[in-house]
Design a protein around this nucleic acid. Structure first.
Length: 548
RNA sequence: GCGCCCGUAGCUCAGUGGAUGAGAGCGACGGAUUGCGGAUCCGUAGGUCGGGGGUUCGAAUCCUCCCGGGCGUACCA
């Protein structure tokens, strides 16, 4: 990374002046204006208070002896900004590294980063996944591949409650559907799971098992619970696979109860003096750990609340050896997160173990109308219908394009538009275009898979070419930022930016020219753009076609 | 009432823990191709970065208050 190299040089120079700073802590940025060089640093302004002279004087001192072969020019501007103009030879090395590595993220990878678990969607198997789950599925899946790319050992997991009241209702409803399929009229309990999907499952069971479960008893209850849940899980898996999302693990809440982990965590909390009884219920002293108020762990009827098994679940994650547990939750879980943090802190887990990405809701807009997505209304757009309608690439791209903590207005009409107006195709088209250029190389006497080692990349001296080289160099930093900030949208912005630079370059200059050396250099640049685009689309889970 | 998130161009939104003219896409208007894919490119118009105050050499970005919207504030999950 060019930025890193400048930081290291700056660090050396600052050492000589008596300042001790880590290179990564030194501000080096691409300035907003081209008048201020390729890169700029405001370090002198930051350190001026520790210096006897003015910030401008300090900047002058820093630049002394810094003008080595890397820099065409180093100047001090304004109140003390240091502007770096890089030589073409130096800039071009970054592209050469990319071309020889065949891996755009080689520099960003560090295999010693530890184990991370990412939990997302985690919707209970009582109904189909919706547009809201879709956003989370995409975000979680991208984060997982992002963390893998930079060297973490990542497992994804889906957690669900396979017991409890909701599952009982599911079982009861499914049984009723089964009976209906056998031709008997049975009342469906009001307000619950009337969906077509249960009718279908009921029919399947009827044809497979005939009249074996005509009476509602314990055997039927457990049969329909297990059957219903398994069928729902299968459907959820099918929906997710439409999106290209697969989980490494599926965790059942019942395991925590069965293996005594819930009991254990309760004892643990009691021993740490983290609980008390009030009104017949057992409360967690959450307020002591920074939560707004205390919260119930065991209801007065003895049942645990949602919180308690989730605490046990996270202790289980911790015991499995993860260094970090990242959890994606919807905006309505804010209070739960505070309670969880309080409980885990009571138990003595490291503060940074439990990390939550709260994402805001999705609304769908079409023909000027905005519809809120609500499962409670009973009217929701399913993940399945959305993906079947628009395709995986478009859905994933749109779901990733906004920062998670912002509301996402999903523009259905724009997403549906299979034309230049749809930003997904903008990126894919850049990739396709490059592939197309490489199919034409023989026409100018260049073999398609020629080696870039011998190419003179300093032929790339046009403004647009240099901008592209700098942009490519920035990719690993963007990936790093996207991962550490849990913000896949940075990738999208960067990708649109890169594609835009490329299209501009393409329109202004010919890649395949009469000058063979120039052609080879430009092909090198194209290859670099293609490599980064492909890697980026790959992380987003969007296909990178060679023709469209 | 209190807590979290959001408020940037007509619309949808970028702008990583501050840094030297406020950006993109869509929409509007006007242009570009007998040549590598026009799903492209170039240009014009359009903004007191919700509002006030504060910190700083410097604030869309940090602090505070206010306004507007979403979510939460359960012995639901």
């Amino acid at each position: 990374m060019i930025k890193r190299e400048i930081q290291i040089l700056l660090r050396e120079r600052l050492r000589e002046l008596g300042f001790d700073r880590k290179p990564e802590a030194l501000p080096v940025e691409e300035p907003s204006s081209d008048d201020y060089g390729d890169f700029a640093s405001s370090i002198a302004l930051e350190l001026a208070s520790e210096f006897e002279g003015s910030s401008r004087d300090l900047a002058e001192r820093i630049t002394e002896g810094l003008e080595e072969e890397l820099f065409k020019k180093v100047t001090v501007a304004g109140p003390g900004f240091i502007n770096f103009d890089l030589t073409l030879e130096f800039l071009v090395k970054s592209l050469a590294r990319l071309l020889s590595s065949s891996d755009p993220l080689k520099e960003a990878r560090d295999s010693n980063r530890g184990r991370v678990q990412i939990e997302f969607v985690s919707s209970n198997p009582t109904g189909p996944l919706t547009v809201g789950h879709c956003r989370q599925a995409v975000l979680g899946d991208i984060l997982a591949s992002l963390y893998r790319k930079i060297g973490y050992n990542v497992d994804t997991e889906y957690y669900f409650n396979d017991e409890g009241r909701q599952m009982d209702i599911l079982a009861r409803t499914l049984w009723a559907r089964y009976k209906q399929a056998l031709g008997e009229a049975v009342d469906i309990p009001e307000d619950v799971y009337k969906g077509e999907y249960l009718k279908d499952i009921g029919k399947d069971i009827a044809s497979e098992y005939g009249e074996r479960y005509t009476e509602w008893n314990d055997a039927a209850a457990s049969f329909f619970k297990e059957k219903g849940m398994n069928q729902m899980i299968e459907r959820i898996k099918d929906d997710l696979s439409l999106l290209g999302v697969e989980f490494d693990g599926w965790f059942r809440e019942s395991k925590l109860h069965r293996e005594g982990e819930v009991e254990e965590v309760l004892t643990n909390l009691e021993e740490k003096d983290g609980t008390y009884e009030k009104d017949g219920a057992l409360w967690l002293k959450a307020e002591e750990e920074g939560a707004p108020r205390d919260v119930v762990l065991l209801k007065s009827n003895g049942d645990p609340t949602y919180l308690l098994p989730d605490v046990a679940y996270h202790l289980d994650k911790y015991d499995r050896g993860y260094d970090r547990a990242i959890v994606l939750l919807g905006a309505d879980h804010q209070r739960h997160v505070e309670n969880m943090k309080a409980a885990l802190s009571k138990l003595g887990l490291p503060d940074d173990f439990y990390q939550v990405l709260i994402n805001q809701f999705v609304s769908l807009s079409s023909e000027g109308e905005v519809k809120r997505m609500s499962t409670r209304e009973g009217e929701f757009v399913t993940l399945k219908s959305l993906v079947e309608d628009l395709g995986k690439d478009v859905v994933r791209y749109f779901m990733a394009a906004r920062k998670p903590e912002s509301h996402l207005e999903f523009d259905y009409d724009l997403a549906k538009e299979e034309s230049m107006d749809n930003p997904v195709y903008y990126l894919q088209y850049a990739h396709t275009r490059i592939a197309s250029i490489f199919r034409k190389t023989e026409g100018v006497g260049i073999e398609e898979d020629f080696q870039f080692e011998d190419v003179d990349l300093t032929k790339l001296d046009k403004y647009e070419e240099v901008e592209l080289i700098k942009k490519l160099d920035k990719f690993s930093e963007i990936v790093e930022i996207s991962a550490s900030n849990y913000g896949p949208h940075h990738l999208v912005s960067y990708g649109e930016n890169l594609a835009s630079l490329f299209h501009g370059f393409y329109n202004k200059y010919k890649v395949l020219t009469d000058d063979e050396e120039l052609s080879r250099a430009r092909l090198g640049l194209c290859k670099g753009v293609q490599m980064v685009l492909r890697e980026l689309l790959n992380i987003l889970g969007v296909s990178a076609p060679v023709s469209m």
